[in-house]
Amino acid sequence: MSDLIRSLTTSTFDEYVTTADRPVVVDFWAEWCGPCKMIAPVLEEIATEQQDRLAVAKVNVDENPELARRYDVLSIPTLLVLKEGKPLARIVGARGKAQLVQELAAYL
């Protein structure tokens, strides 16, 4: 995984998303989810190309089920866009890069 993408846990999540100086795109994922694996490289590219505008973080739902519950995540991949800790938007389901970039642009 790219150095630019932080892996968050229940104990590190709040501090990270509330203190980030850019909007954070949190990818809720799991090892057993095929579509999650498909978008992982897409998110790495976005994290690199748009590092001035956003930060990308990941939450493994297997290891952090309470975070998934807190944000009513019932389907993965779910991308949650947070600004100063507040959820702005969610994108449910895998997508191609062009479409993902376009959908994210609205919240940056």
């Binding site: 579509p35 978008i39 897409v42 389901g93 997508r95 191609g96």
Partner: peptide
């Protein structure tokens, strides 16, 4: 392209 609807 990636998708969650079997079209991927």
């Amino acid at each position: 392209e990636p998708s969650s609807t079997s079209d991927q």
